[in-house]
Each structure stands twice: as C-alpha cells, then as structure tokens.
Amino acid sequence: MTSSQVTDPPRESEFTAYFEPIAPPAGDDPEYAYFQPTVAVVSVWSPQIQHGGPPTGLLVRAMEKAVDPGDGQQFSRVTMEILGAIGLGVNRVRTWIPRPGRQISQVCAELEVRGADGTYRSVARTTAWRLRSSDSSAIQDLPRPPLPELPDDLPQNTGFPESVEIPEAWRHMGFIGTVTVAAQPGRLGDSTAVWLRPRLPLVAGEETSDLARAFTVIDVANGLGAGDLDPTRWSWMNTDTTVHLVRQPTGGWVGIDAKMAAGADGYAASFADLYDTSGFVGRSAQTSLLAAVDAG
C-alpha cells in the first residue's frame, strides 16, 4: 500500500495547522513569539487542554531557531516538562542558551499560556543538550534492528486502527484525529508498534523540520504504552517526556514501540523505542501519575 492509500480521510475543517502565528497582543512582551493553537491540538483527556505532542513540537521548533544551524552540533537529549494544564488561550514562547559551547551546549525554551484575566503562566519547559557531531560509524552499535515493516507497506489510517490497544473513545479524538497511523506487532512483550505522521504543519505557513515533526508525535507513547488500560477506571496523564537520540530522525514518519511499567504506589513510567524509516533513532521515557477514576 502506498502513502496515498489512507483510510478514514479527515473531513474538511477550518484549521490548516496546529498553531497560527500571531502578532504580540497589545501591551505584551514583544521578545516572545506568539501563537494561537487551533482545535487540532486538543487532548484526549479534556477538550479544554492541549495534547502534549503539539506544544512539545512547538518548543523544539523554538530551540532549533535559537541555535546556529551551522555550528556542527546536533540535538542529543530533549526533556519536556509539563508544569500545568496547557490551555487553548494565546500561547507564547521564549528561548535562551544557559550553557553555550563549541562541543557541548544547552538550550531551553518555555511556553506560557494567557488566561482569561490576560495574565500569563508558565505551563511547559524544554531543556536540550546539543553535542558536536563527528564520524563514529566505526563503532556504531544499535540495540534494535529496524522495524520489520515500513509504513508504506502497511494499511494506513487517520487515527488509531482497531489493531492498536487504545481506549476506543480516543481513536480519532482531537490531535489523534490529525495523525496518520500504520501499525504492526511490537517487540516489547505484547506491544503494538506504530508509525505516526502528523497530517498538518506545526505552524501555519511553515515547513516543519524533521526534528520538530518527530517531537510532535513522540508524546503519544504514553497512551500507546498503556495498552488496554481503561480510562473510565484509571487516568495516567504524564508529567514529562525525555528523549535520548543516537542520531537525528529524518523523513515524515516516526515509529514508536512503547510499554508502560505501572507500579503499585500510584505512578508509572512509559518507555519506548523510537525509529524512522532508516532504523533505530533513540528511546523515550515518560512519568505518569496513576489515579483511580471516581465512578460515583
């Protein structure tokens, strides 16, 4: 099957991207970059908040723009910390470089959301390490071979197909309904590995970089890793996403093979192997608060 053969095509809608760039509202700090999120970012947990994926992509985009692309360094580790509910009001982003360097550097970005009273609060922060790139192919040693099937060889769906163990109500909800998905058996126990590709650009009027596109979907690992955990009985919202890369992801597709480890004390961690169509690119880890849903 080719990438043009996608089932469940999305309906025509009013949005063409996850974020619309806007001018700074009157009186707001012009040192920030301002955006209006569209309904394409909506979370499966609530229609009033964003899924973790698009804001992560937005912060990675900001960090890419803050650094010199010709400095010979590449992103090696990115951590996204969710500090609060990421709302749908005006979003603004700032970046800074706390640790410059020729071989190792650190870059940070922060996302704030404007509330109904016009004030902003910080809701997410990313920190990334960038390392000098050099030829280490002579000692390359990857823990996993490429996924056995590529997305163009698999049936593709808008949202999650029935073969993926995920809550039924989430299969096409909000952000998930804007992502093309192709599934195959995973390698982590009874997991299902999925190929994911956003159908929309991250920011209207821009071409999304391969790195930002990958980070727009990696947060999905938290839901995938939970398998058939019932959201009417349990919630497992993640507080963070940390990704360690061994090379830069390329192309439009990201492969995720995820599995949650749920402890007995009210919290869990989801771990995932990450791929592009050339093979293994790294691993992610996410912390989740487990909470029983009050049936009353």
Rank of each mutant, 00 (worst) to 15 (best):
T158D: 03
Q248L: 13
P69Y: 03
S136H: 13
D29W: 00
M63S: 06
R77S: 15
L142G: 01
M260Q: 08
M80Q: 08
Q286A: 10
P100E: 04
W236T: 01
D257C: 02
A109V: 07
A262M: 12
Q103Y: 05
S4Q: 14
A212M: 08
P167Q: 01
T208K: 12
T158K: 00
T79D: 05
E165W: 11
S270V: 15
E14G: 15
T158N: 11
V93T: 08
A26K: 14
Y32C: 14
A262I: 11
G223A: 04
A264V: 11
A264R: 13
T38M: 11
I49T: 10
S270Q: 08
L88Q: 07
W234G: 00
D257P: 06
G252H: 06
R77K: 13
A26E: 15
Q36D: 06
G279L: 08
K65T: 02
R197N: 09
R130M: 12
G266C: 09
P145C: 02
P145W: 09
T95W: 07
I49E: 05
V78A: 05
G186T: 11
N91E: 08
N238A: 06
G174E: 01
V6Y: 11
W170R: 02
L154P: 09
A183W: 05
V164A: 01
A269F: 14
V113Q: 10
T38L: 09
R11N: 13
A124Y: 01
R132M: 12
L289S: 08
L245H: 06
H244Y: 07
L150F: 10
G266W: 00
V107E: 12
D219I: 09
T119I: 08
R99D: 05
A285F: 03
P143A: 11
A269S: 08
A204P: 00
P198N: 09
I104K: 07
A291D: 05
P249V: 03
A221T: 03
T232H: 12
I139P: 00
D68A: 06
G251L: 06
L224C: 05
L58P: 00
E165K: 12
I49K: 05
E165F: 10
F160P: 12
Q48P: 01
P145T: 10
A23F: 03
L111R: 01
F15S: 11
G52I: 03
H244M: 10
E81C: 05
S288L: 15
L224N: 02
T216G: 06
V220L: 13
W253I: 01
W253C: 02
G57R: 01
V6T: 11
A214G: 02
L111S: 09
A26Y: 04
L200C: 08
A62Q: 04
S13L: 07
F271Q: 09
M237G: 08
R283K: 07
L224G: 04
V107A: 11
G101W: 14
A292M: 12
R144W: 14
R125D: 05
A268Q: 02
G101V: 11
V60S: 07
P69N: 04
F215D: 01
W234Y: 11
D135M: 05
S278Y: 04
A116K: 15
L188S: 15
P98T: 07
V42W: 00
L196Q: 03
S191K: 06
W170I: 00
S46Y: 07
R199V: 00
